[in-house]
């Protein structure tokens, strides 16, 4: 009975794994097939004559520029959000702040507001102040989207670093800022990394903000570039799946690298978001 339930559990897991990863592996397989084998009946699970022609085609169309844009936007936004968020989070924990309950409510409330709900007025506002379709608009917006979360995570995790450690560092001859940098930040590192990962995924995976805030091809994110590519090339599934794989590798790699912090943070309930 026990062995049976153990076996059925394992089978269920295997099935779950296949359902989760199967579609992605299928896309990877498709992206490596020559165009004339893509619609083969029955479908070839593994490419018989693998080719990189679809990847080459995407590169020829300049996919790497969009890739770089997405990376730069995400990295800048995450850095800005972490710096501002950690600063505010620290102050909200250790200092008296004017109107603190209201400030906390602003961060907590906006943490849950999806950027999409205010995207349209944001576009109008950005247009009227001349930020629409510029290099800076996406990092600013992305940073604003993930900032409340960064503040929240910093605040709750800085609180787990004993005040005495900071006092000890101050007495050891360091300024308050140095004490925070050398003692508090390292103490909250796992949570900050979890917030950074979360933020990176948000930025990299966005499509609606990117597609509505910039028009110029050279400013496009990878997601937007892919949809444009689909528009031009319609059912060139090999190239589209190559695009899917290219767009999937960075977030999945980041997720795999930092999954320990992400899963740990959310599972112990300390990184609520």
């Amino acid at each position: 009975m026990k062995i049976l339930s153990r076996a059925s559990l394992l089978i269920a897991c295997l099935l779950a794994g296949i359902i989760a990863l199967g579609p992605i592996l299928w896309a990877a397989s498709t992206s490596l097939k020559p165009t004339n084998r893509i619609f083969a009946v029955p479908p070839e699970i593994l490419p018989q004559n693998p080719t990189l022609e679809h990847y080459a085609k995407l590169l020829a169309e300049g996919v790497h520029w969009a890739f770089l844009n997405s990376s730069a936007y995400a990295v800048v936004a995450v850095l800005v959000a972490l710096i501002l968020g950690a600063t505010a989070g620290y102050a909200l924990m250790r200092y008296p702040v004017a109107g603190k309950p209201a400030v906390l409510l602003v961060f907590m409330g906006t943490m849950a507001v999806p950027g999409f709900a205010v995207l349209l007025p944001t576009q109008m506002l950005a247009t009227s102040i001349g930020l629409h379709d510029t290099w800076s608009i996406l990092p600013i917006l992305y940073a604003g989207h993930i900032l409340p979360f960064a503040v929240w995570v910093s605040r709750s995790h800085f609180a787990t670093v004993p005040r005495e450690l900071e006092q000890a560092a101050e007495m050891d001859g360091y300024s308050r800022a140095e004490a925070v940098w050398k003692i508090v930040i390292p103490g909250a590192k796992p949570a900050l990394l979890a917030a950074a990962t979360f933020g990176f995924l948000h930025c990299w995976n966005d499509y609606v903000t990117g597609s509505t805030m910039v028009d110029s091809p050279e400013l496009r994110t990878l997601q937007v570039a892919l949809i444009f590519f689909q528009g031009f090339h319609g059912r060139d599934w090999g190239s589209l799946m190559a695009g899917v794989i290219i767009a999937t590798i960075p977030p999945v790699v980041v997720f795999l690298l930092f999954r320990k912090f992400l899963i740990g943070g959310f599972a112990d309930g300390s990184v609520k978001g």
């Binding site: 968020g85 505010a88 200092y95 008296p96 205010v118 007025p121």
Partner: peptide, 30 residues
């Protein structure tokens, strides 16, 4: 201490208001 605290929170607060709250108000106006 209050001044220090408030000024450390200010940049984040302003950005969040500018990106999340101001558009909501402007959207309502529009």
């Amino acid at each position: 201490a209050r001044l220090t605290g408030s000024s450390l929170v200010a940049p984040a607060l302003l950005l969040v208001i500018a990106i999340n709250i101001l558009p909501a108000l402007y959207g309502f106006y529009l």
